[in-house]
Design a protein around this nucleic acid. Structure first.
Lengths: 246, 246
DNA sequence: TCAATTATGATTATTTTTGAACAAATAAGC
DNA sequence: GCTTATTTGTTCAAAAATAATCATAATTGA
Protein backbone atom coordinates (compact mmCIF):
# COMPACT_ATOMS: atom_id res chain seq x y z
CA UNK A 1 0.00 0.00 0.00
CA UNK A 2 1.69 3.18 -1.17
CA UNK A 3 1.18 6.69 0.00
CA UNK A 4 -1.08 7.74 -2.85
CA UNK A 5 -3.49 4.92 -2.14
CA UNK A 6 -3.48 5.57 1.58
CA UNK A 7 -4.08 9.22 0.91
CA UNK A 8 -7.21 8.30 -1.02
CA UNK A 9 -8.43 6.00 1.73
CA UNK A 10 -7.84 8.60 4.38
CA UNK A 11 -9.74 11.24 2.45
CA UNK A 12 -12.55 8.80 1.75
CA UNK A 13 -12.92 7.97 5.40
CA UNK A 14 -12.68 11.62 6.32
CA UNK A 15 -15.42 12.40 3.88
CA UNK A 16 -17.80 9.82 5.30
CA UNK A 17 -17.06 9.94 9.03
CA UNK A 18 -15.68 13.46 9.36
CA UNK A 19 -12.63 12.47 11.37
CA UNK A 20 -9.85 9.93 11.59
CA UNK A 21 -7.75 8.59 14.45
CA UNK A 22 -4.02 7.91 14.19
CA UNK A 23 -4.17 4.57 16.01
CA UNK A 24 -7.15 3.23 14.11
CA UNK A 25 -5.67 4.43 10.88
CA UNK A 26 -2.40 2.63 11.56
CA UNK A 27 -4.27 -0.56 12.40
CA UNK A 28 -6.62 -0.40 9.42
CA UNK A 29 -3.97 0.40 6.86
CA UNK A 30 -1.43 -1.89 8.49
CA UNK A 31 1.21 0.76 8.90
CA UNK A 32 3.03 2.17 11.90
CA UNK A 33 1.62 5.08 13.82
CA UNK A 34 4.40 7.37 12.78
CA UNK A 35 3.70 6.68 9.15
CA UNK A 36 0.04 7.46 9.50
CA UNK A 37 1.03 10.58 11.37
CA UNK A 38 3.28 11.57 8.51
CA UNK A 39 0.48 10.91 6.03
CA UNK A 40 -1.85 13.19 7.93
CA UNK A 41 0.80 15.88 8.18
CA UNK A 42 1.39 15.83 4.48
CA UNK A 43 -2.30 15.97 3.70
CA UNK A 44 -2.71 18.82 6.16
CA UNK A 45 0.13 20.58 4.41
CA UNK A 46 -1.82 20.34 1.17
CA UNK A 47 -4.81 21.81 2.95
CA UNK A 48 -6.86 18.65 2.52
CA UNK A 49 -7.62 18.17 6.20
CA UNK A 50 -7.22 19.76 9.62
CA UNK A 51 -4.72 18.12 11.87
CA UNK A 52 -5.84 17.47 15.45
CA UNK A 53 -4.19 15.83 18.40
CA UNK A 54 -4.31 12.15 17.70
CA UNK A 55 -5.97 12.41 14.32
CA UNK A 56 -7.50 14.77 11.80
CA UNK A 57 -10.77 16.38 10.81
CA UNK A 58 -12.44 17.37 7.60
CA UNK A 59 -11.81 20.88 6.41
CA UNK A 60 -14.71 23.17 7.02
CA UNK A 61 -17.32 22.44 4.39
CA UNK A 62 -17.24 26.18 3.68
CA UNK A 63 -20.57 27.29 4.97
CA UNK A 64 -22.14 29.19 2.15
CA UNK A 65 -23.51 32.17 3.99
CA UNK A 66 -25.35 34.22 1.50
CA UNK A 67 -27.35 33.14 -1.43
CA UNK A 68 -27.87 36.23 -3.43
CA UNK A 69 -30.46 34.75 -5.71
CA UNK A 70 -32.67 33.76 -2.81
CA UNK A 71 -32.40 37.10 -1.15
CA UNK A 72 -33.25 38.82 -4.36
CA UNK A 73 -36.37 36.72 -4.71
CA UNK A 74 -37.89 38.40 -1.68
CA UNK A 75 -40.27 41.22 -2.55
CA UNK A 76 -39.44 40.55 -6.12
CA UNK A 77 -42.55 42.05 -7.65
CA UNK A 78 -42.13 45.27 -5.72
CA UNK A 79 -38.48 45.43 -6.62
CA UNK A 80 -39.24 44.56 -10.20
CA UNK A 81 -41.75 47.38 -10.39
CA UNK A 82 -39.15 49.79 -9.10
CA UNK A 83 -36.56 48.51 -11.51
CA UNK A 84 -38.89 48.64 -14.47
CA UNK A 85 -39.38 52.30 -13.74
CA UNK A 86 -35.66 52.81 -13.36
CA UNK A 87 -34.94 51.11 -16.67
CA UNK A 88 -37.10 53.66 -18.44
CA UNK A 89 -34.49 56.25 -17.55
CA UNK A 90 -31.67 54.32 -19.18
CA UNK A 91 -31.10 54.80 -22.88
CA UNK A 92 -28.61 53.51 -25.40
CA UNK A 93 -25.24 55.17 -25.03
CA UNK A 94 -25.58 55.76 -21.30
CA UNK A 95 -22.75 55.10 -18.91
CA UNK A 96 -24.16 54.10 -15.55
CA UNK A 97 -22.96 53.04 -12.11
CA UNK A 98 -24.73 50.15 -10.40
CA UNK A 99 -23.98 49.31 -6.81
CA UNK A 100 -24.30 46.02 -4.99
CA UNK A 101 -27.71 45.91 -3.36
CA UNK A 102 -30.29 43.26 -4.09
CA UNK A 103 -32.69 45.83 -5.51
CA UNK A 104 -30.21 47.21 -7.96
CA UNK A 105 -29.38 43.65 -9.00
CA UNK A 106 -32.89 43.17 -10.31
CA UNK A 107 -32.39 46.07 -12.62
CA UNK A 108 -30.15 43.82 -14.74
CA UNK A 109 -32.98 41.95 -16.40
CA UNK A 110 -34.45 45.17 -17.74
CA UNK A 111 -31.29 46.52 -19.31
CA UNK A 112 -29.80 43.41 -20.90
CA UNK A 113 -30.65 44.54 -24.39
CA UNK A 114 -29.57 48.13 -24.03
CA UNK A 115 -26.35 49.30 -25.61
CA UNK A 116 -24.90 50.88 -22.52
CA UNK A 117 -21.83 50.68 -20.34
CA UNK A 118 -22.30 49.50 -16.78
CA UNK A 119 -19.66 50.17 -14.14
CA UNK A 120 -20.19 48.04 -11.06
CA UNK A 121 -18.60 46.48 -8.01
CA UNK A 122 -21.23 43.74 -7.76
CA UNK A 123 -20.43 40.21 -8.90
CA UNK A 124 -24.05 39.15 -9.38
CA UNK A 125 -24.58 42.13 -11.65
CA UNK A 126 -21.50 41.13 -13.64
CA UNK A 127 -22.68 37.52 -14.01
CA UNK A 128 -26.11 38.60 -14.98
CA UNK A 129 -24.97 41.03 -17.65
CA UNK A 130 -22.07 39.00 -18.89
CA UNK A 131 -23.49 37.77 -22.16
CA UNK A 132 -25.66 40.68 -23.06
CA UNK A 133 -25.54 43.83 -25.12
CA UNK A 134 -24.15 45.66 -22.11
CA UNK A 135 -20.47 46.47 -21.90
CA UNK A 136 -19.13 46.00 -18.40
CA UNK A 137 -16.48 47.68 -16.33
CA UNK A 138 -15.51 46.03 -13.09
CA UNK A 139 -14.44 48.00 -10.06
CA UNK A 140 -11.29 46.36 -8.72
CA UNK A 141 -10.21 45.70 -5.18
CA UNK A 142 -10.84 43.32 -2.34
CA UNK A 143 -13.73 40.95 -2.81
CA UNK A 144 -16.10 40.70 0.12
CA UNK A 145 -17.28 37.18 -0.43
CA UNK A 146 -20.28 37.46 1.84
CA UNK A 147 -21.67 40.42 -0.03
CA UNK A 148 -20.31 39.22 -3.35
CA UNK A 149 -19.00 42.66 -4.09
CA UNK A 150 -15.78 44.60 -4.20
CA UNK A 151 -15.12 47.02 -1.40
CA UNK A 152 -12.33 48.94 0.26
CA UNK A 153 -9.79 51.64 -0.38
CA UNK A 154 -8.69 50.39 -3.76
CA UNK A 155 -12.28 50.17 -4.97
CA UNK A 156 -13.03 53.72 -3.88
CA UNK A 157 -9.94 55.00 -5.64
CA UNK A 158 -10.90 53.07 -8.72
CA UNK A 159 -14.39 54.52 -8.84
CA UNK A 160 -12.93 58.02 -8.58
CA UNK A 161 -11.25 57.49 -11.94
CA UNK A 162 -14.56 56.92 -13.69
CA UNK A 163 -17.30 59.36 -14.44
CA UNK A 164 -20.84 58.35 -15.36
CA UNK A 165 -24.00 60.17 -16.32
CA UNK A 166 -26.22 58.17 -14.02
CA UNK A 167 -25.86 56.10 -10.87
CA UNK A 168 -28.41 53.56 -9.64
CA UNK A 169 -27.95 52.92 -5.96
CA UNK A 170 -29.51 50.96 -3.17
CA UNK A 171 -29.52 52.08 0.44
CA UNK A 172 -30.53 50.54 3.77
CA UNK A 173 -32.45 53.63 4.78
CA UNK A 174 -33.40 57.05 3.52
CA UNK A 175 -35.10 60.11 5.00
CA UNK A 176 -35.10 63.87 4.57
CA UNK A 177 -31.97 63.79 6.75
CA UNK A 178 -29.93 61.73 4.33
CA UNK A 179 -28.89 58.26 3.23
CA UNK A 180 -28.18 55.47 5.69
CA UNK A 181 -26.28 52.19 5.50
CA UNK A 182 -25.69 49.19 7.68
CA UNK A 183 -22.14 48.80 6.51
CA UNK A 184 -19.32 51.29 6.43
CA UNK A 185 -17.78 49.62 3.40
CA UNK A 186 -20.93 49.84 1.35
CA UNK A 187 -21.50 53.40 2.44
CA UNK A 188 -18.10 54.43 1.14
CA UNK A 189 -18.72 52.80 -2.21
CA UNK A 190 -22.14 54.39 -2.55
CA UNK A 191 -20.69 57.78 -1.68
CA UNK A 192 -17.99 57.30 -4.30
CA UNK A 193 -20.60 56.55 -6.94
CA UNK A 194 -22.55 59.65 -5.95
CA UNK A 195 -19.45 61.82 -6.27
CA UNK A 196 -18.67 60.59 -9.75
CA UNK A 197 -22.11 60.68 -11.33
CA UNK A 198 -24.02 63.55 -12.78
CA UNK A 199 -27.45 62.26 -11.83
CA UNK A 200 -28.06 59.84 -8.97
CA UNK A 201 -31.12 57.59 -8.61
CA UNK A 202 -31.80 55.81 -5.33
CA UNK A 203 -33.90 52.66 -5.64
CA UNK A 204 -35.84 51.89 -2.50
CA UNK A 205 -38.95 50.06 -1.49
CA UNK A 206 -41.39 51.59 1.02
CA UNK A 207 -39.72 49.82 3.95
CA UNK A 208 -36.52 51.77 3.52
CA UNK A 209 -38.16 55.17 3.72
CA UNK A 210 -37.79 56.78 7.12
CA UNK A 211 -35.44 54.06 8.23
CA UNK A 212 -32.56 56.03 9.75
CA UNK A 213 -30.33 53.08 10.42
CA UNK A 214 -26.80 52.86 11.83
CA UNK A 215 -24.70 55.07 9.62
CA UNK A 216 -25.62 58.26 7.81
CA UNK A 217 -23.20 58.69 4.96
CA UNK A 218 -24.70 61.35 2.68
CA UNK A 219 -27.09 64.30 2.72
CA UNK A 220 -30.33 63.95 0.85
CA UNK A 221 -29.45 66.81 -1.50
CA UNK A 222 -26.51 64.84 -2.86
CA UNK A 223 -28.90 62.65 -4.83
CA UNK A 224 -31.27 63.77 -7.53
CA UNK A 225 -34.07 61.22 -7.55
CA UNK A 226 -35.57 58.28 -5.76
CA UNK A 227 -37.50 55.54 -7.47
CA UNK A 228 -39.91 53.82 -5.13
CA UNK A 229 -43.24 52.09 -4.72
CA UNK A 230 -44.07 54.03 -1.56
CA UNK A 231 -47.30 55.99 -1.35
CA UNK A 232 -47.64 59.74 -0.91
CA UNK A 233 -48.04 59.42 2.86
CA UNK A 234 -44.53 58.09 3.21
CA UNK A 235 -43.12 60.50 0.69
CA UNK A 236 -44.45 63.60 2.43
CA UNK A 237 -41.24 63.88 4.42
CA UNK A 238 -39.35 64.81 1.26
CA UNK A 239 -41.60 67.76 0.39
CA UNK A 240 -39.00 70.31 1.53
CA UNK A 241 -36.21 68.75 -0.51
CA UNK A 242 -35.24 69.14 -4.15
CA UNK A 243 -35.62 65.38 -4.62
CA UNK A 244 -37.42 64.14 -7.72
CA UNK A 245 -39.73 61.29 -6.84
CA UNK A 246 -40.37 58.67 -9.50
CA UNK B 1 6.54 -8.94 -26.28
CA UNK B 2 7.24 -5.47 -27.56
CA UNK B 3 6.65 -2.19 -25.86
CA UNK B 4 3.41 -1.39 -27.66
CA UNK B 5 1.91 -4.66 -26.54
CA UNK B 6 3.07 -4.26 -22.95
CA UNK B 7 1.79 -0.70 -22.90
CA UNK B 8 -1.65 -1.98 -23.85
CA UNK B 9 -1.59 -4.64 -21.15
CA UNK B 10 -0.49 -2.17 -18.52
CA UNK B 11 -3.25 0.25 -19.38
CA UNK B 12 -5.80 -2.56 -19.43
CA UNK B 13 -4.81 -3.70 -15.98
CA UNK B 14 -4.76 -0.15 -14.74
CA UNK B 15 -8.26 0.35 -16.02
CA UNK B 16 -9.65 -2.70 -14.29
CA UNK B 17 -7.76 -2.71 -10.99
CA UNK B 18 -6.80 0.93 -10.69
CA UNK B 19 -3.16 0.26 -9.92
CA UNK B 20 -0.17 -1.78 -10.96
CA UNK B 21 2.89 -3.00 -9.11
CA UNK B 22 6.38 -3.01 -10.62
CA UNK B 23 7.30 -6.43 -9.25
CA UNK B 24 4.07 -8.13 -10.31
CA UNK B 25 4.24 -6.43 -13.66
CA UNK B 26 7.76 -7.72 -14.24
CA UNK B 27 6.72 -11.24 -13.29
CA UNK B 28 3.52 -11.27 -15.35
CA UNK B 29 5.07 -9.83 -18.47
CA UNK B 30 8.28 -11.76 -17.97
CA UNK B 31 10.51 -8.72 -18.12
CA UNK B 32 12.99 -7.25 -15.68
CA UNK B 33 11.89 -4.79 -13.08
CA UNK B 34 13.85 -2.01 -14.64
CA UNK B 35 12.09 -2.50 -17.94
CA UNK B 36 8.66 -2.39 -16.37
CA UNK B 37 9.79 0.73 -14.53
CA UNK B 38 10.84 2.26 -17.81
CA UNK B 39 7.50 1.36 -19.35
CA UNK B 40 5.65 3.05 -16.55
CA UNK B 41 7.84 6.13 -16.76
CA UNK B 42 7.16 6.50 -20.45
CA UNK B 43 3.45 6.12 -19.97
CA UNK B 44 3.54 8.60 -17.14
CA UNK B 45 5.40 11.02 -19.36
CA UNK B 46 2.54 10.75 -21.84
CA UNK B 47 0.13 11.51 -19.04
CA UNK B 48 -1.55 8.11 -19.29
CA UNK B 49 -0.94 7.09 -15.71
CA UNK B 50 0.30 8.44 -12.41
CA UNK B 51 3.60 7.06 -11.25
CA UNK B 52 3.95 6.00 -7.63
CA UNK B 53 6.70 4.41 -5.61
CA UNK B 54 6.66 0.78 -6.60
CA UNK B 55 4.03 1.06 -9.30
CA UNK B 56 1.47 3.33 -10.84
CA UNK B 57 -2.12 4.43 -10.50
CA UNK B 58 -4.86 5.65 -12.76
CA UNK B 59 -4.65 9.37 -13.33
CA UNK B 60 -8.12 10.35 -12.29
CA UNK B 61 -8.57 9.16 -8.70
CA UNK B 62 -5.90 11.46 -7.37
CA UNK B 63 -7.96 14.46 -8.25
CA UNK B 64 -9.58 15.91 -5.21
CA UNK B 65 -12.97 14.54 -4.23
CA UNK B 66 -14.20 18.12 -4.38
CA UNK B 67 -16.46 19.45 -6.99
CA UNK B 68 -14.58 20.59 -9.99
CA UNK B 69 -15.82 21.94 -13.21
CA UNK B 70 -14.55 19.83 -16.02
CA UNK B 71 -14.88 22.44 -18.66
CA UNK B 72 -12.21 21.49 -21.10
CA UNK B 73 -11.73 17.77 -20.66
CA UNK B 74 -9.07 17.95 -23.32
CA UNK B 75 -5.63 17.59 -21.79
CA UNK B 76 -7.22 17.96 -18.43
CA UNK B 77 -5.09 15.32 -16.80
CA UNK B 78 -1.95 16.89 -18.15
CA UNK B 79 -3.08 20.30 -16.97
CA UNK B 80 -4.07 18.89 -13.62
CA UNK B 81 -0.67 17.31 -13.22
CA UNK B 82 0.95 20.64 -13.93
CA UNK B 83 -1.35 22.42 -11.54
CA UNK B 84 -0.82 19.87 -8.81
CA UNK B 85 2.87 20.57 -9.05
CA UNK B 86 2.22 24.30 -9.02
CA UNK B 87 0.02 24.05 -5.94
CA UNK B 88 2.91 22.52 -4.02
CA UNK B 89 4.66 25.86 -4.31
CA UNK B 90 1.78 27.75 -2.71
CA UNK B 91 1.65 27.90 1.06
CA UNK B 92 -0.62 29.53 3.60
CA UNK B 93 -0.02 33.25 3.79
CA UNK B 94 1.06 33.61 0.19
CA UNK B 95 -0.15 36.44 -2.00
CA UNK B 96 -0.29 35.29 -5.60
CA UNK B 97 -1.28 36.59 -9.02
CA UNK B 98 -3.26 34.30 -11.29
CA UNK B 99 -3.88 35.23 -14.89
CA UNK B 100 -6.68 34.19 -17.19
CA UNK B 101 -5.56 31.11 -19.11
CA UNK B 102 -7.38 27.80 -19.04
CA UNK B 103 -4.40 26.07 -17.49
CA UNK B 104 -4.14 28.54 -14.67
CA UNK B 105 -7.86 28.17 -14.10
CA UNK B 106 -7.41 24.51 -13.24
CA UNK B 107 -5.07 25.53 -10.45
CA UNK B 108 -8.11 26.72 -8.51
CA UNK B 109 -9.21 23.28 -7.40
CA UNK B 110 -5.87 22.64 -5.75
CA UNK B 111 -5.73 25.84 -3.73
CA UNK B 112 -9.30 26.09 -2.46
CA UNK B 113 -8.32 25.09 1.05
CA UNK B 114 -5.26 27.25 1.31
CA UNK B 115 -5.30 30.42 3.35
CA UNK B 116 -3.92 32.71 0.70
CA UNK B 117 -4.77 35.85 -1.17
CA UNK B 118 -5.34 35.58 -4.91
CA UNK B 119 -5.20 38.62 -7.14
CA UNK B 120 -6.72 37.95 -10.53
CA UNK B 121 -8.35 39.43 -13.61
CA UNK B 122 -10.11 36.18 -14.52
CA UNK B 123 -13.82 35.82 -13.83
CA UNK B 124 -13.80 32.01 -13.87
CA UNK B 125 -11.05 32.02 -11.27
CA UNK B 126 -13.12 34.38 -9.15
CA UNK B 127 -16.26 32.23 -9.43
CA UNK B 128 -14.33 29.09 -8.66
CA UNK B 129 -12.64 30.49 -5.57
CA UNK B 130 -15.55 32.51 -4.34
CA UNK B 131 -16.67 30.34 -1.46
CA UNK B 132 -13.35 28.97 -0.40
CA UNK B 133 -10.64 29.67 2.12
CA UNK B 134 -9.00 31.95 -0.42
CA UNK B 135 -9.29 35.71 -0.14
CA UNK B 136 -9.74 37.35 -3.52
CA UNK B 137 -8.72 40.65 -5.03
CA UNK B 138 -10.21 41.56 -8.36
CA UNK B 139 -8.34 43.55 -10.94
CA UNK B 140 -10.66 46.28 -12.15
CA UNK B 141 -11.24 47.60 -15.62
CA UNK B 142 -13.00 46.75 -18.82
CA UNK B 143 -14.45 43.27 -19.01
CA UNK B 144 -13.65 41.36 -22.17
CA UNK B 145 -16.70 39.16 -22.28
CA UNK B 146 -15.27 36.72 -24.80
CA UNK B 147 -12.27 35.94 -22.65
CA UNK B 148 -14.18 36.42 -19.41
CA UNK B 149 -11.38 38.52 -18.07
CA UNK B 150 -10.54 42.12 -17.34
CA UNK B 151 -8.12 43.81 -19.68
CA UNK B 152 -6.95 47.22 -20.75
CA UNK B 153 -5.22 50.30 -19.47
CA UNK B 154 -7.10 50.56 -16.20
CA UNK B 155 -6.39 46.90 -15.43
CA UNK B 156 -2.69 47.35 -16.07
CA UNK B 157 -2.58 50.38 -13.83
CA UNK B 158 -4.45 48.55 -11.17
CA UNK B 159 -2.06 45.62 -11.20
CA UNK B 160 0.84 48.01 -10.80
CA UNK B 161 -0.54 48.98 -7.41
CA UNK B 162 -0.28 45.46 -6.10
CA UNK B 163 2.77 43.45 -5.26
CA UNK B 164 2.76 39.67 -4.84
CA UNK B 165 5.33 37.08 -3.90
CA UNK B 166 4.39 34.70 -6.68
CA UNK B 167 2.67 34.87 -10.04
CA UNK B 168 1.17 31.88 -11.87
CA UNK B 169 0.82 32.61 -15.55
CA UNK B 170 -0.23 30.92 -18.73
CA UNK B 171 1.25 31.70 -22.13
CA UNK B 172 0.45 30.74 -25.69
CA UNK B 173 4.06 29.94 -26.42
CA UNK B 174 7.44 29.83 -24.76
CA UNK B 175 10.98 29.28 -25.95
CA UNK B 176 14.52 30.30 -25.01
CA UNK B 177 13.74 33.51 -26.87
CA UNK B 178 10.92 34.57 -24.60
CA UNK B 179 7.20 34.42 -23.89
CA UNK B 180 4.61 34.62 -26.67
CA UNK B 181 0.92 35.48 -26.77
CA UNK B 182 -1.88 35.49 -29.30
CA UNK B 183 -3.42 38.62 -27.90
CA UNK B 184 -1.93 42.00 -27.19
CA UNK B 185 -4.30 42.61 -24.31
CA UNK B 186 -3.40 39.41 -22.54
CA UNK B 187 0.28 40.00 -23.16
CA UNK B 188 0.09 43.36 -21.41
CA UNK B 189 -1.64 41.88 -18.41
CA UNK B 190 0.83 39.04 -18.17
CA UNK B 191 3.72 41.49 -18.39
CA UNK B 192 2.17 43.57 -15.63
CA UNK B 193 1.94 40.52 -13.38
CA UNK B 194 5.56 39.67 -14.09
CA UNK B 195 6.65 43.19 -13.16
CA UNK B 196 4.84 43.11 -9.84
CA UNK B 197 5.76 39.66 -8.59
CA UNK B 198 8.92 38.51 -6.91
CA UNK B 199 8.86 35.02 -8.37
CA UNK B 200 7.06 34.12 -11.58
CA UNK B 201 5.92 30.64 -12.56
CA UNK B 202 4.79 29.89 -16.10
CA UNK B 203 2.43 26.92 -16.42
CA UNK B 204 2.62 25.28 -19.82
CA UNK B 205 1.97 21.91 -21.35
CA UNK B 206 4.42 20.37 -23.79
CA UNK B 207 2.59 21.80 -26.79
CA UNK B 208 3.41 25.37 -25.80
CA UNK B 209 7.15 24.82 -25.68
CA UNK B 210 8.93 26.03 -28.79
CA UNK B 211 5.73 27.64 -30.03
CA UNK B 212 6.93 31.11 -31.00
CA UNK B 213 3.54 32.50 -31.88
CA UNK B 214 2.45 35.99 -32.98
CA UNK B 215 3.65 38.33 -30.30
CA UNK B 216 6.74 38.13 -28.14
CA UNK B 217 6.11 40.18 -25.04
CA UNK B 218 8.80 39.22 -22.54
CA UNK B 219 12.29 37.80 -22.36
CA UNK B 220 12.75 34.39 -20.88
CA UNK B 221 14.91 35.75 -18.08
CA UNK B 222 12.00 37.79 -16.76
CA UNK B 223 10.43 34.66 -15.35
CA UNK B 224 11.94 32.40 -12.74
CA UNK B 225 10.39 28.99 -13.34
CA UNK B 226 8.23 26.98 -15.67
CA UNK B 227 6.04 24.12 -14.54
CA UNK B 228 5.45 21.65 -17.32
CA UNK B 229 4.86 18.05 -18.26
CA UNK B 230 7.28 18.21 -21.18
CA UNK B 231 10.14 15.74 -21.37
CA UNK B 232 13.84 16.58 -21.32
CA UNK B 233 14.06 16.55 -25.10
CA UNK B 234 11.77 19.54 -25.34
CA UNK B 235 13.36 21.27 -22.39
CA UNK B 236 16.89 21.10 -23.79
CA UNK B 237 16.38 24.48 -25.43
CA UNK B 238 16.34 26.14 -22.00
CA UNK B 239 19.69 24.77 -20.93
CA UNK B 240 21.46 28.10 -21.44
CA UNK B 241 18.87 30.05 -19.42
CA UNK B 242 18.58 30.60 -15.70
CA UNK B 243 15.10 29.11 -15.79
CA UNK B 244 14.12 26.66 -13.08
CA UNK B 245 12.23 23.75 -14.57
CA UNK B 246 9.68 22.06 -12.36
C1' DT C 1 27.03 -7.81 -44.25
C1' DC C 2 28.09 -4.24 -40.97
C1' DA C 3 27.53 -0.10 -38.54
C1' DA C 4 24.09 2.38 -36.02
C1' DT C 5 20.25 2.65 -33.39
C1' DT C 6 17.22 0.82 -30.04
C1' DA C 7 15.61 -2.09 -26.32
C1' DT C 8 16.83 -4.64 -22.44
C1' DG C 9 19.37 -6.20 -18.44
C1' DA C 10 22.90 -5.85 -14.64
C1' DT C 11 25.37 -3.09 -11.34
C1' DT C 12 26.00 0.61 -8.32
C1' DA C 13 24.96 4.96 -6.08
C1' DT C 14 21.26 7.87 -4.64
C1' DT C 15 16.77 8.93 -3.11
C1' DT C 16 12.49 7.84 -0.92
C1' DT C 17 9.87 5.56 2.32
C1' DT C 18 9.21 3.52 6.55
C1' DG C 19 9.94 2.38 11.31
C1' DA C 20 12.20 2.83 15.98
C1' DA C 21 14.00 5.47 19.83
C1' DC C 22 13.91 9.42 22.63
C1' DA C 23 13.29 14.21 24.10
C1' DA C 24 9.92 17.97 23.96
C1' DA C 25 5.28 19.54 23.84
C1' DT C 26 0.43 18.87 24.79
C1' DA C 27 -3.68 17.19 26.91
C1' DA C 28 -5.93 14.98 30.85
C1' DG C 29 -6.51 13.74 35.60
C1' DC C 30 -6.05 14.82 40.42
C1' DG D 1 -1.27 24.23 41.23
C1' DC D 2 0.97 19.31 40.15
C1' DT D 3 1.66 14.68 37.98
C1' DT D 4 0.85 11.32 34.42
C1' DA D 5 -0.15 9.72 29.97
C1' DT D 6 -0.39 10.72 25.28
C1' DT D 7 1.00 12.89 21.20
C1' DT D 8 4.40 15.03 18.60
C1' DG D 9 8.92 16.39 16.45
C1' DT D 10 13.56 14.93 15.65
C1' DT D 11 17.16 12.01 14.63
C1' DC D 12 18.91 7.87 12.99
C1' DA D 13 18.97 3.45 10.56
C1' DA D 14 17.13 -0.16 7.54
C1' DA D 15 14.66 -1.39 3.51
C1' DA D 16 12.72 -0.52 -0.78
C1' DA D 17 12.54 1.92 -5.02
C1' DT D 18 14.73 4.76 -8.23
C1' DA D 19 18.18 6.99 -11.27
C1' DA D 20 22.48 6.63 -13.55
C1' DT D 21 25.86 4.15 -15.83
C1' DC D 22 27.55 0.67 -18.50
C1' DA D 23 27.24 -3.69 -21.07
C1' DT D 24 24.74 -6.82 -23.95
C1' DA D 25 21.22 -8.35 -27.20
C1' DA D 26 17.89 -7.25 -30.79
C1' DT D 27 16.50 -4.54 -34.62
C1' DT D 28 17.05 -1.45 -38.34
C1' DG D 29 18.68 0.51 -42.61
C1' DA D 30 22.10 1.11 -45.84
Amino acid sequence: MNFQRRKQKILDQLNSTGEVDIKKLAAELNISEITSRRDLNQLANDGLLYRTHGGAMKVDPLAKPHDFVNKSAQNSTVKDDICRKAAEHIIDGDIIFMDCGSTVFRLCQFIKNKKIKVITNSLPVIYELQNSAVSINIIGGELNSERQAVHGKMANEHISKYRAGKAFLGVDGISENGLFANSELEAEITQAYINQSTYTYVLCDAGKIGNETYLKFADINQVEAIITNAGDDKLDRFKDTALTIL
